[in-house]
């Protein structure tokens, strides 16, 4: 199901445009979240970003049991009973999404919208005055932005034409040929590292990390990079692993390291998508450990921030 499909109109599939983003690069920014991701990280806090097609999101809390969705569903996937409330059989659902228009209570929503470069840019440019005063700009994130590289390239190029500061938030999982095409239009790369050992990486994300690490080496020759890493207890928070991270950071001459302690943000979204949360055992290191990690990186002479 996760195969990229092209849109004939040259539109990109966007799942959110977040204004007043202040943690995705310098200053006040707008972050454009592209939908679809080739990785499948267990801890993913935005599981609605993974599929490369629009998803039905269900908020049962808002449901007033009016029955409009049951009536309109062509697959008979929705049933409403007094006892059990509304049930949606995800197996029967064809994601045709007609139920969304029928729902007036914002209980059924779509995640993902096809937009043109112009439409996205218009939204981004609305906060231009804030970017100018704060040294902010546009960040493109995901999902994995590189999956829709052609659209992203056009968006970045259009942004540069408007003299915006641009940042790309990526796992770096794409061929170098793809990454290379985008670089001329990117001022800063927020590089999301998960693990430096390929086997470990594959275990928790579904893919190895060779391509990612190769791309960092190459990109770092010309680009400013901030490394970001989700901090997950028992997975990537050991001293030996962090030492490797510091080595990589030094080698790639990154400006700073951001550590994002694991949180359960993806759990409620999995529920809305009708999925089981794949990482119930996930944990962040305790505060004390986080402090010591921070100290360790600082001691190595690197700038580090936690949760930012």
């Amino acid at each position: 199901m996760n195969l990229p499909k092209s849109n004939d109109n040259g539109e990109g599939l966007v799942f959110n445009i977040q204004r007043f983003s202040i943690h995705d690069g310098p200053g006040i920014r707008t972050t454009v979240f592209m939908k679809g991701c080739p990785l499948n990280c267990h801890w993913c806090s935005n599981p609605e970003s993974q599929d490369f097609f629009p998803n039905l999101m269900v908020r049962d809390m808002n449901c007033r049991q009016c029955g409009a969705c049951e009536k309109i569903c062509p697959e008979g996937a929705i049933t409403l009973t007094r006892e059990a409330g509304r049930k949606i059989e995800r197996g029967k659902c064809s994601q045709c999404l007609v139920c969304i228009d029928a729902c007036i209570y914002n209980s059924l929503n779509v995640c993902g919208k096809y937009m043109t470069v112009g439409e996205v840019l218009d939204e981004v440019l609305k906060d231009r005055a804030f970017y100018r005063n704060s040294g902010g700009g546009m960040t493109i994130s995901g999902g994995e932005a590189l999956l829709q590289w052609e659209f992203v390239m056009r968006l970045l190029r259009a942004g540069k034409r408007q003299e915006l500061h641009t940042a790309l938030d990526t796992s770096g999982y794409a061929t170098w040929q793809t990454v290379e095409k985008l670089l001329p239009f990117v001022d800063l790369i927020l590089w999301d590292i998960k693990h430096l050992d390929s086997r470990e990486h594959k275990k928790m994300t579904g893919v190895g990390n060779h391509m990612i690490l190769e791309n960092i080496q190459k990109a770092s020759k010309t680009k400013t990079i901030w490394l970001r890493m989700p901090l997950i207890a028992g997975f990537n928070d050991s001293d030996t692993h962090l030492a490797k991270l510091i080595d990589l950071a030094k080698e790639a001459a990154v400006e700073k390291i951001s550590l994002l302690p694991y949180h359960e943000g993806g759990k409620s979204k999995c529920e809305q998508l009708g999925r089981t949360y794949p990482f119930p055992a996930g944990k962040a290191p305790n505060d004390e450990r986080i402090e010591s990690i921070k100290g360790m990186i600082e001691k190595a002479g690197m700038r580090v921030s936690i949760g930012v």
Partner: peptide
């Protein structure tokens, strides 16, 4: 580190 960003926000308010 967010304080300078807040001040930039105020400056934009002023400019608007």
């Amino acid at each position: 580190q967010m304080k300078p960003v807040f001040i930039d926000y105020l400056k934009t308010w002023r400019e608007m």
